[in-house]
């Protein structure tokens, strides 16, 4: 039993990171119908910038927010320089553009920083906390708490604030949003900035546990993308459920079956879900008009 609980705890911790990345995918997708494959690079930027500022003597409480701001600026630049000019391009062109951006950012990080593996200390100590015979790292609680805080904050922002409602309106119907006077371009910029900041936050929270290097972005993007698709693209609830589910499946497979095939089982589950529900667990049941 304690073994099972251990897998649940570690699966949820990893799953919360995936969920944050998937949430970033969802935000950008809603604002622009672009799936941003460079999303994983924001996670990398969050971790790397914090690690380097910390190594240079900046206290963690200052280094982490700086890293998130840096990532947000990169996200906004990405939108302005590569996504906005390509408006109306096909799905496959957009995939190539954002993968190009991902390769570019990875190459840049390899030069600006270095190609070593980095970490910084956990926020509140490294001693595992015992929970009914299982253990969880204090940093794991930070990841879970951070994920929950982002979720609540995002929910309140999107449903209660006027700017958040404008973002939702843009997501629902771009043309209609324009007609009621919403500046849809600034909503897109906002979504990219916000999404990059959430990705970077995931990187900051997870780095003490998972470590960071210039090339961790691809793996992160794949997992986040898979989680978002599992949940149903465009649904924030789907992103969270998809992320947590993916983390749990991986932890259970690694624990009970084989750690080599944890990714395989995750993808098999995704394939089966998509075969049965072609738009994911919580995706809109889209009706195509001809």
């Amino acid at each position: 039993m304690s073994e099972f609980l251990q897998y649940v705890l570690s699966g949820t911790t990893v799953g919360a990171v995936y969920a944050l990345i998937a949430l970033g995918f969802t935000l950008i997708y809603n604002a622009s119908t672009v799936v941003n494959f460079a999303q994983g690079e924001f996670v990398m930027i969050g971790g790397m910038v914090t690690a380097f500022l910390f190594a240079a003597g900046t206290p963690l409480w200052l280094a982490a927010p700086t890293a998130i701001v840096v990532a947000a600026i990169v996200g906004i630049l990405l939108n302005k320089l590569a996504i906005e000019p390509a408006r109306g391009a096909s799905v496959i062109s957009l995939i190539v553009i954002t993968i190009g951006a991902s390769i570019f950012l990875r190459g840049l990080a390899g030069i600006v920083f270095d190609k070593q593996i980095h970490r910084f200390p956990a926020f509140t100590g490294e001693d595992p906390i015992a929970v009914f015979g299982a253990t969880i790292l204090p940093q794991g609680l930070w990841v879970l708490g951070g994920g929950a805080a982002v979720l609540v904050g995002l929910y309140l922002f999107l449903t209660r604030s006027i700017v958040g409602k404008a973002v939702m309106a843009t997501a629902n119907n771009r043309l209609a949003a324009k007609l009621v006077g919403i500046n849809t371009n600034s909503m897109m910029t906002l979504s990219f900035g916000l999404s990059a900041a959430i990705g970077a936050l995931a990187g900051v929270l997870a780095t003490p546990i998972t470590l960071v290097a210039y090339d961790v972005g691809v793996g992160m993007a794949l997992k986040g993308f898979a989680a978002a698709m599992l949940g149903g693209m465009g649904s924030p609830v789907g992103a969270i459920v998809g992320g947590l589910l993916l983390g749990l499946i991986e932890a259970m497979t690694a624990g009970y079956l084989s750690s080599e095939y944890k990714d395989a089982v995750a993808f098999i589950v995704i394939l089966i879900v998509l075969f049965v529900m072609p738009s994911g667990l919580f995706g809109p049941r889209s009706v195509e008009r001809v």
Binding site: A82, P85, A86, A89, S90, S93, V96, I97, I99, G100, A101, S102, I103, F104, L105, R106, G107, L108, G110, I111
Partner: peptide, 20 residues
């Protein structure tokens, strides 16, 4: 060598943005 990935990514983006 150092800039190989940056250049590749840049070329992918520029071509797709300007020559869809």
């Amino acid at each position: 060598k150092e800039y190989e990935h940056m250049m590749l990514g840049l070329i992918m983006m520029v071509v797709m943005v300007f020559m869809p």
